[in-house]
């Protein structure tokens, strides 16, 4: 029986739609001409300009500090939350679930604005630290959801077996549960890491002195900077993204084969 061709064509159109702007951006990053619509020959000068831009390096450092610390904290909090949600059925967990789930669906601008109001009201100075607090807040929910999904596929008879063999709760958690769930927790962490690196809107609201992050820097470069330099920066970030996606795919595969 002949299948419809529509899905194939739609997929091709979507992929073209996804990648056309990206490809043009990458090509232009090597374009000697300043103007995107003419090809002026191959050149690396925009990359050189990028390397000389110390604001970018500074922003990158801030982004790294925040992404690493927010990822670690949200991994711990999110994993605990997932355990609780999976293990218990109670009114407390209903409330807990709502509390963990709602941040996923609240638009960024609302979260940014409400956090800003909170910091103003309790007179906390805006700084890298407030960005860290904000990022953990939205990352917890994502980590919890990813780990929760893994827990549902998890075969708890292993835990029973360990118990039967006389393992203490601590031994069960550190010796059995965590290692087996590690790919799931890491996948959650990776998601938190990318979300943190990527966040613009919330950070924009709660950023203080000297806490410009990479997305804020990119935004300001889109507005003021030289477009080809942004092309160069984008190309590098795309390469990093590619590696990250590949890594996380590997993690997922490991999980399914183990």
């Amino acid at each position: 029986m002949k299948r419809s061709r529509i899905p194939l064509y739609t997929t091709l159109v979507c992929l073209l739609f996804f990648y056309l702007p990206i490809i043009i951006l990458i090509v232009n990053s090597f374009n000697k001409s300043r103007f995107g619509s003419v090809w002026g020959g191959f050149s690396l000068r925009w990359y050189q300009k990028l390397m000389e831009n110390r604001d970018v390096w500074f922003a990158l450092k801030n982004t790294a500090i925040i992404a690493v610390s927010a990822t670690i904290v949200s991994m711990v909090l999110g994993t605990l939350a997932a355990f609780a949600l999976h293990r218990y059925r109670s009114r407390l967990q209903n409330a807990h679930y709502t509390l963990v789930y709602t941040p996923l669906v609240v638009p960024d601008i609302l979260m940014g604005m409400s956090l800003l109001l909170l910091f103003v009201q309790v007179k906390v100075q805006l700084s890298l630290f407030t960005i860290f607090l904000a990022h953990v807040t939205f990352c917890i929910s994502y980590v919890a959801m990813v780990v929760l999904a893994r827990l549902q596929d998890f075969d708890f008879s292993v835990v029973e077996a360990a118990r039967d063999l006389g393992a203490s709760t601590r031994q069960v958690v550190t010796g059995v549960l965590l290692p087996l769930l590690a790919p799931g927790i890491l996948a959650g962490g990776l998601l938190a890491f990318t979300l943190s690196i990527d966040d613009f809107v919330i950070t924009f609201f709660v950023a203080g002195p000297g806490s410009t992050t990479l997305p804020i820097q990119i935004y300001s470069m889109i507005k003021h900077g030289s477009p080809p330099v942004i092309n160069a920066l984008s190309t590098i970030l795309l390469a990093v993204t590619f590696v990250m996606v590949w890594l996380s795919q590997r993690l997922t595969e490991e999980k399914t084969t183990s």
Binding site: L15, L25, I197, P215, I218, S234, L237, L238, T241, V245
Partner: peptide
């Protein structure tokens, strides 16, 4: 192929369209 754009910085994707 679908996940990569999902993980690409969204400001960059907007910028690509501006160009």
């Amino acid at each position: 192929l679908v996940i990569i754009p999902f993980w690409t910085n969204f400001l960059i994707r907007i910028f690509a369209w501006k160009v």
